[in-house]
Simulated assay, not measured.
Amino acid sequence: MRTIVASLFTSLDGVTDEPGQWHFPYWSDEMAEDVEATMSGADTMLLGRRTYEGFAASWPDRADEGAEFMNTITKYVVSATLAEADWNNTTVITRDQVAELKARDGGTIMISGSVSLVRSLLLAGELDELHLLVHPIVLGRGARLFDDIGTELPLTLTGSRTFGTGVLALTYTR
């Protein structure tokens, strides 16, 4: 059975919305190494529809660090509304098909962003690891990972690291 690992940028007050607007001042070589380590071993990426649309509009035209990985990895968009995906190596699946994908042979299945999908998989017990990069900024508004989940969700801290920029890398399992 494969593992599903999600990695999210979050503010101190839990906002995961639009990290491109607040995350980059905290980017560092340490964070790049951490993100790369999280991606290593992954041969598949799960994306929610909104994250897919943003990534598909951006990554195919890029040639910077990470572009080759993002453009060649096998991608699955979990969506009930998207009919087809045109970014190379991308297939649209339903939420019910995630368990089938996880049961197949292969490497780690990674999720980058896709907050609604991460929340859904966490609540269903299908997410194996949650990797949060907590930035030392309070945004005060925006979508949060744990908005209105309606239940307790006990997690176990399995790793932590502090970067020179003040960002905390926290790893949790269910």
Rank of each mutant, 00 (worst) to 15 (best):
G41R: 08
E18W: 09
L8D: 09
E68N: 14
T81V: 03
V78R: 07
Q97M: 14
V167Q: 08
S7K: 05
T10C: 11
A67F: 04
E30Y: 00
R144C: 03
L8S: 06
G14E: 06
Q21N: 12
D147F: 10
S116V: 00
L122Q: 01
L47R: 04
A103K: 13
L122S: 00
G164Q: 07
S58H: 10
I149E: 02
L132I: 14
R50D: 05
T81P: 07
E100Q: 13
R141I: 07
M110I: 12
A42P: 08
N71P: 14
G113D: 00
G14A: 05
L121M: 07
L168Y: 10
V35L: 15
T158L: 05
M110D: 03
G48V: 05
G150M: 06
M45E: 11
V115R: 09
L122D: 00
L153V: 13
A32Y: 13
R50Q: 07
V134T: 12
W27N: 02
S160C: 14
G164C: 08
T151I: 08
L132Y: 07
D17L: 07
G20S: 08
V15Y: 02
N71K: 11
T38E: 15
R174N: 14
G125F: 03
V35Q: 10
L101D: 00
L46Q: 03
G159A: 12
T74E: 11
T94Y: 04
T38A: 15
R161Y: 06
S58T: 14
G54Y: 00
W87L: 08
E129Q: 13
R161T: 09
D128R: 01
D148F: 00
E18T: 15
A6Q: 01
E65F: 15
G41K: 08
F69L: 11
G20E: 10
M70H: 10
R62S: 12
L121H: 07
W87A: 07
A99I: 11
I137Y: 00
I137V: 11
N71R: 10
I109V: 05
G48Q: 02
A57S: 12
E65C: 09
E68I: 03
S120T: 14
E68F: 03
R144E: 01
M31T: 07
M110L: 14
G113V: 00
T72E: 15
A6V: 06
M39Q: 11
A37D: 11
G113F: 03
E68C: 07
L121C: 07
A143C: 02
I111Q: 02
E36A: 14
V167Y: 10
Y26M: 14
V167R: 12
I109W: 00
D128N: 08
S112M: 04
H131A: 09
E18Y: 11
E33R: 15
T91V: 13
P25A: 04
G106M: 03
A143S: 11
G164K: 09
G164W: 02
P60N: 05
P19I: 04
E152W: 15
I149G: 03
S28I: 10
